[in-house]
Design a binder for these strands. Structure first.
Lengths: 214, 214
DNA sequence: ATGATTGGATAGTGCCACTCTCCATTGAAG
DNA sequence: CTTCAATGGAGAGTGGCACTATCCAATCAT
């Protein structure tokens, strides 16, 4: 497959594909001559994932690159690659974590995790980025005058737990290989906006159920 | 309260506040003299909401302005104001909705809503933006080669339904007034990132629960 | 042989959330 | 009363980012 065909099949412009190659979001094609390269199905699949991460997931290019690097890290087992890829996901800027607001927020999260029995997450030496970004979000909200307590988060966390269990069940049904990791990352990233849309839709349905139509 | 004090209290720079005033995200202060204006608690509260929508919710300024316009629309009842504000929320670009991919996506969503019994959402003449953006997301994913079926979405939707019920219960405990609408919008917008963080964290916990630590 | 196409490099574009600079007015200190 | 820093307002400028347009030499198809 040549660049032009890759572009057609994916619906991504040639210029953009070149940009992704430059940014190492897409591995270079197999060089055939000095001026031509050959691409295959894996490139197409990867390109779709990249588009999805950036366009649907709203992820910055740098983050997408990190996630992909973990997916491709042959030195890790599949489970770890998935974990590492998820590990690299969060987009919020890493905050200091040592000011007063963050300390409060962290205590609140600790309380929440204890309540939930998610002890494994706390026992890791380095705080996972997800953990950190949760703390940052809460600290930010607190700073803006919106207090967020463990008690308020608990019901949300319980629902997310159900979803995580469902996700893992789904994941175990996939064939092994890089494809599995890609699919898992895709599911994590791409379902986020769907989840939020569903939340809004559910709220709409519930509102009219309680108060009737406009 | 002068501009400088508003800036200090909120932690938002004077230049940025001026920008928000210009963009009509913040109502002008009460003019005291030709060159000075007075701001109050409502301004501070509004400013915090704006910051939260933009910074935490990642919302574009134009969208934030629309949402605020609905919050302030005195001609609507509280429930409607909340609905209208939520109505204006989605950020994904409105897609055509009439191509083949969208038709498929729409059918899938119809199927899902029927299954869930969220009939009210479908019965509205104009499709709600949330509904539209859900269809668009699914169509995009389909176009990228990730098929999303009603069956796959169902478990997620059920969890979101629980969250929506919880949200409505919380909402009914708030005192009435513009504050209530603001708080409701804040909850909708600001809890989104928290929800996603919690999802990731839950997945991490579930992964180590099943496969042990790294 | 020759014109079109390819991959690669570089510079430019458009958007957007700010941020800087300037200005006339005005409140406060001496 | 005088002087000087501060205020609110308006327009232009900045920086980041995801592309995109332009070139160019090599090479493929005819």
């Amino acid at each position: 497959m040549r660049l032009a065909e890759l572009s057609e099949q994916s619906g991504v412009s040639i210029a953009t594909i070149k940009y992704y190659l430059r940014e190492r979001l897409l591995p270079p094609g197999r060089r055939v001559t000095a001026t031509q390269a050959e691409y295959d199905e894996a490139h197409l699949r990867r390109l779709r994932l990249v588009r999805a991460m950036i366009q649907v997931g709203g992820m910055p290019v740098a983050t997408a690159r990190e996630v992909l690097a973990h997916i491709d890290d042959e030195s890790l087992g599949l489970t770890m690659r998935l974990g590492a890829a998820t590990w690299a996901l969060p987009q919020p800027p890493e905050a200091p974590l040592d000011d007063a607001a963050s300390t409060d927020a962290r205590q609140e999260v600790e309380r929440l995790l204890e309540e939930l029995g998610w002890d494994s997450v706390r026992e890791v030496g380095d705080l996972s980025p997800v953990y950190r970004s949760l703390i940052t979000s809460i600290a930010t909200l607190n700073g803006l005058g919106y207090t967020v307590s463990a008690a308020e988060l608990l019901p949300y966390a319980r629902q997310m737990e159900q979803i995580a269990i469902h996700d893992m069940d789904q994941l175990e049904n996939l064939p092994e290989g890089t494809e599995q990791v890609e699919a898992a990352v895709a599911a994590q990233v791409l379902y986020d906006p769907l989840l939020l849309s569903l939340r809004r839709l559910a709220l709409e349905a519930e509102t009219t159920r309680r108060y009737g139509m406009a």
